[in-house]
Computed example of a mutant assay.
Amino acid sequence: MDNFGGIIQKAVYLGVGLASYAGEKANQKLTELRKETQKLADEMVKRGEMSTEEARKFVEDMMNKAMQQAPIDSSPETRPNEPRRIEILSEDDNSSDNNPTEVDKMRQEVNSLQEELRRLQKD
């Protein structure tokens, strides 16, 4: 029975340690976000695209949004069933960069990869 208490104690310590680690990582990310947002705002002020007051408000708004945003859940239930569709468009001009055979090859490769993905999802 004494061994069981030790296991529970270790589990509690593990939980506290993980929570502490997650908090530190979140704090680091928020600090990085604030720095990058501040750089962007400073650059926009330098260009004259916004005033210093607008820049301060912009940084505050971005930080508030970042802290309020729910964590991204990557569980299978929330992921879409199919990947995002990508359409390859070719321009109709006859420049040397647009080789129709190369575009056709790429389309065929994309189609074959899509079919393989569908096949793998069914398995």
Score class of each variant (00 low, 15 high):
49 E>R: 03
7 I>S: 09
32 E>D: 05
34 R>E: 05
108 Q>A: 12
14 L>P: 01
61 D>N: 07
84 R>E: 08
8 I>L: 12
61 D>K: 05
21 Y>T: 07
93 D>I: 02
117 L>H: 14
93 D>W: 02
1 M>E: 05
47 R>P: 01
106 M>E: 05
10 K>N: 15
89 L>Q: 06
107 R>C: 09
118 R>S: 09
115 E>V: 10
118 R>E: 08
39 K>S: 07
95 S>T: 04
44 M>E: 10
68 Q>R: 12
56 R>Q: 03
13 Y>N: 15
28 Q>H: 01
5 G>S: 11
48 G>M: 01
48 G>P: 00
100 P>H: 02
121 Q>G: 04
45 V>P: 00
25 K>S: 11
27 N>H: 06
50 M>K: 01
106 M>R: 07
54 E>K: 05
118 R>N: 10
57 K>N: 01
38 Q>L: 02
71 P>K: 10
11 A>F: 10
5 G>R: 10
92 D>F: 10
118 R>D: 08
96 S>V: 08
38 Q>A: 03
69 Q>L: 14
25 K>I: 15
39 K>P: 01
70 A>I: 12
39 K>L: 06
68 Q>L: 13
29 K>R: 12
9 Q>M: 09
112 S>P: 04
61 D>A: 04
107 R>H: 06
53 E>Q: 13
8 I>H: 04
39 K>F: 06
22 A>I: 03
81 N>P: 08
90 S>T: 12
19 A>P: 04
87 E>M: 14
104 D>M: 12
62 M>I: 13
114 Q>R: 08
7 I>D: 11
116 E>H: 12
94 N>Q: 02
52 T>I: 13
109 E>N: 08
6 G>N: 13
81 N>Y: 07
87 E>S: 15
29 K>G: 05
79 R>T: 06
108 Q>H: 15
32 E>R: 04
61 D>E: 13
84 R>Y: 09
93 D>L: 02
29 K>C: 08
1 M>S: 05
96 S>H: 11
10 K>F: 14
45 V>C: 00
38 Q>I: 00
33 L>A: 06
74 S>M: 15
72 I>M: 09
49 E>H: 04
55 A>L: 00
108 Q>F: 09
78 T>V: 15
16 V>E: 01
98 N>I: 05
46 K>W: 06
77 E>Q: 14
121 Q>W: 09
112 S>R: 11
48 G>T: 00
31 T>I: 03
83 P>F: 11
31 T>D: 01
77 E>R: 13
108 Q>L: 12
75 S>Q: 01
86 I>F: 09
60 E>G: 02
72 I>F: 11
70 A>R: 15
80 P>G: 09
88 I>Y: 04
82 E>S: 07
76 P>Q: 04
99 N>P: 02
106 M>A: 06
64 N>M: 13
3 N>L: 09
31 T>R: 04
122 K>L: 08
52 T>E: 10
74 S>L: 14
64 N>P: 11
103 V>K: 03
55 A>H: 00
80 P>D: 13
117 L>K: 13
87 E>P: 02
75 S>M: 05
11 A>H: 09
47 R>W: 08
117 L>P: 07
40 L>C: 00
43 E>G: 03
66 A>T: 03
74 S>D: 15
121 Q>P: 02
83 P>I: 07
16 V>H: 03
30 L>Q: 04
115 E>L: 07
65 K>D: 14
32 E>Q: 08
72 I>S: 10
41 A>S: 00
93 D>G: 03
